[in-house]
Design a protein around this nucleic acid. Sequence first.
DNA 1: CTGTGTTCCTGTTCGC
DNA 2: TGCGAACAGGAACACA
Length: 290
Amino acid sequence: MPELPEVETVRRGLAPVMVNGLIRQVELRRADLRFPLPERFRERLEGRRVASLDRRAKYLLARLDSAETLIMHLGMSGSFRVEDGEGAAVPGDYYHARSKAAAHDHVVFRFAGGASVVYNDPRRFGFMDLAPAGANDILPGLGPEPLDPLFDAASLARSLAGKAAPLKSALLDQKIVAGLGNIYVCEALHRARLAPERLAGTLATGTGRPTAGAERLEQAIEEVLGEAIAAGGSSISDHVLADGSLGMFQHRFRVYDREGEPCPREGCGGHIGRRVQAGRSTFYCDRCQR
DNA sequence: CTGTGTTCCTGTTCGC
DNA sequence: TGCGAACAGGAACACA
């Protein structure tokens, strides 16, 4: 489920509970998620205080006062919710979250003071790991953060230079830009008026100067991610905020899951098509994306 | 090295 | 209504 905006939304929801919180107890309801949980997972967490909760790409990183880092990835269907001491949710539209909960609650972090953070993940594509103290390059191979000022059209064009892969595949590649998934790649390409099957290398030039297409794409990525974060992410089926409420950006999709509808671009007159690329559905306007 | 296809798992939706 | 097939936001891995 979650791409960068959803993970960032989750981070903001969890931060008030987790940051400076003391992990009193960890309950594991199974020994593995997508991968086995790391050695001595409970022992390394219990009694530790969370110094900060960061996000890198689609990963949540809880820095502990032991200098270890708890790495969490939500996979396709993972979500967190916050409960108070009695097992009821903090205020919010909890009903939605509750209906899916319980059966797939895999990990519970209980904090001193009574709040709990519960990880739920029906498909179990998510995972958690602990990076030891002093580990450098905790998440190797990830490309730039798209909302980092260092990410600009020139660096994007450089990353795409020489690539024979279609833009759709290239943007899903976390080494090129970190944090985009199927939805936001489709949305960014539409905003940039670039066809998903266009070859990535065509956005670079020999001179190192970015093309107009690369400029538009970089702008579109920043814009769509920023708007999505402001809307609390997109709730397709699983994404909920930590208080159980829903993200709203799914109502603002221009192409994703809109096959057959008219292109929302003013004066375009095209229609939204769907095709499978790299095994995933790609939605695009058949007229204004080139 | 590059790019594509498969796979992990469960739940929901769609067509007959 | 019931049932099987297709499909779903990710990413590691195998393979050509």
